[in-house]
Design a protein around this nucleic acid. Structure first.
Lengths: 150, 150
DNA sequence: TAATATAGTATGTTTTGCCTAACAATGCAA
DNA sequence: TTGCATTGTTAGGCAAAACATACTATATTA
């Protein structure tokens, strides 16, 4: 029992939570209108999502009030953001894709990959970033890296 | 104008096409029942999907008959299979994830990534597989590899 | 304080993808 | 060749996620 998992969020609710996190980080609070703009979705859709997130205990939501994350929501949002960041970094820094495409791809891929994969990918990025040479195969270097750094 | 693109398939239609390709490769023909089993959906759902794929000109479909791919469908299925294979290989051979998780992750991620990303990823796998040593950074080696092999 | 602009909500519809249950076709076996 | 099991289709529904339109609440400001 490594972690208590929040009953899994749908891809779209993850997007909403991510947007709320980002807006709150930038503007101190998140307003419904801004969420709608950021996700290019109607205000009506946002209301529905906010209610869903609230029911799951991830945000503080009261009609006509600003939105903020609960503790649980902050944790969950952190996970989501980390996933996004790792993927974007991989696409950009490792594969060398242009930033625009890297970001888009990260957005679309992030909902498909679980903790284990993302964790491993993160390690791989570290590995690939740090490591610069050596006489053995990539695979064995990476395996070794995982063991020693893990 | 490098390619005429089939109006984009939904994730689920891609899955159906992939399953049809695999079944046809294995059994010579694809039957509705087998598709349903492979994708773990009801037979009724398969009928709906077959109609959709047929309307897009990707399969030959007639009620109560076996299913086969059109030329267009074969091309499209090839793309999808390649994408899947590349991802699965990356997760398994590069990240070193267990085969089971690698396959699952590939299934879920494959719908999120476009040609450009998959192409680049494929090159990266080649690179990482072939390359065993050298004195320069991974990034520059890969960039060089892309230029020379590109 | 009343008018108006802005923000939020309710309602009803659409699309997509799946389901179950009932019905139809096919084909094998007695 | 009749009869039953298997396979395929149809019909009817449900749920998620989005939208547009219309209405309500709040805030601003004249």
């Amino acid at each position: 029992m490594t972690q208590i998992k929040t009953q899994k969020l749908s891809a779209s609710l993850e997007d909403y939570l991510e947007a709320i996190f980002n807006l709150a980080a930038k503007n101190a609070v998140a307003r419904s209108k801004d969420i709608a703009d950021q996700l290019a979705v109607s205000r009506a859709s946002v209301t529905g999502a906010l209610r869903a997130l609230s029911k799951k205990g991830l945000i503080h939501y009261k009609p006509y009030d600003v939105v903020s994350l609960t503790e649980k929501g902050r944790v969950e949002a952190g996970r989501i953001i980390r996933r996004h960041t790792v993927l974007e970094s991989f696409f950009k820094d490792i594969l060398g894709l242009n930033p625009q495409l890297a970001r888009e791809s990260a957005c679309r891929a992030e909902h498909a990959l679980g903790q284990r994969v993302v964790g491993r990918l993160m390690k791989y990025i570290e590995f690939a970033t740090i490591q610069t040479s050596a006489g053995n195969s990539r695979a064995s270097e990476f395996a070794h890296f995982c063991k020693t750094q893990g």
